[in-house]
């Protein structure tokens, strides 16, 4: 479903992502972890079509991002780490905006938007300007809008930042449910407990390169430990980089 081939990104002389190769199967939840500045957000943004890679390919649902960016993006629900949205639109207007962009059928839009906004507990704020929303509310609105067009892939950068415990639990359950329905989820996170809890596989990125990937058990083997949680495994794998 998701395939990254020799993905490389340079910002001037800085190498942010170094020859990354990765594939994620349909219906899989893939967690992407790594220290600060490891290249997680850059990789996520390239996958979302927000950044162009210096080299390499991103293929989603069999379509190459470079060949048909619009076609690929139509299949993706992209959720960034910081919820910057149009402050002068209302929540419902932002949902309509997203629906128009992604070609959501007019007949199903209203019901679906209301359902998502209710699910994320922001329906009562639907007619208020986004500038009056809190950080968490904006994050919930972005997640709602990303699901509006029934994407086949969700690409999400730090999904739990700014969410309250109830919303975190709801998002986790929803990701599991969507994954069971065949949706592929690629998420980067610093919350290792969340990654351990819901991800089928986890990749560890370090200095722009993928240094380990697999289930938690695979990562433990790579780290050479048997009885340890993901945090400990992560620290061993990225040793010397932690402050």
């Amino acid at each position: 479903m998701i395939e990254l081939k020799n993905l490389t990104k340079r910002y001037g002389k800085t190498l942010a992502v170094n020859n990354l190769n990765l594939s994620v199967a349909r219906g899989e939840i893939y967690g992407f972890i790594g220290p600060n500045g490891a290249g997680k957000t850059t990789t996520i943004r390239i996958m979302g079509g927000v950044l162009a890679p210096t080299e390499g390919l991103v293929t989603i649902d069999g379509i190459n991002m470079a060949d048909d960016p619009e076609g690929v993006k139509r299949r993706i629900g992209f959720i960034p780490d910081r919820p910057f949205i149009y402050e002068k639109l209302t929540g419902m207007e932002f949902m309509r905006f997203s629906a128009d962009l992604y070609g959501v059928d007019e007949r199903v839009f209203r019901d679906k938007a209301e359902e998502l906004l209710k699910k994320f507990a922001i329906f009562n704020w639907a007619d208020e300007l986004i500038e009056s929303y809190s950080h968490g509310m904006k994050q919930r609105l972005i997640i709602s809008s990303a699901l509006l067009h029934d994407p086949t892939v969700i690409i999400v950068d730090e999904p739990m930042v700014g969410l309250d415990p109830a919303a975190i639990k709801m998002v986790k359950n929803m990701f599991r449910e969507l994954s069971r329905g065949g949706m592929t989820i690629f998420m980067s996170t610093h919350t290792l407990a969340v990654a351990e809890d819901i991800c089928d596989r986890i990749g560890v990125i370090h200095r722009g390169a993928l240094i380990a990937t697999g289930t938690t058990g695979d990562l433990k083997r790579d780290a050479g430990v048997e009885e340890a949680d993901l945090e400990e495994v992560f620290l061993i794998l990225t040793e010397g980089q932690q402050i």
């Binding site: 943004r45 927000v50 960016p69 619009e70 139509r74 960034p80 149009y86 962009l101 992604y102």
Partner: peptide, 11 residues
């Protein structure tokens, strides 16, 4: 900063 919406949209 909402330009990511444009970049990630199929437009």
């Amino acid at each position: 900063e909402a330009f990511w919406i444009v970049r990630s949209s199929p437009v």
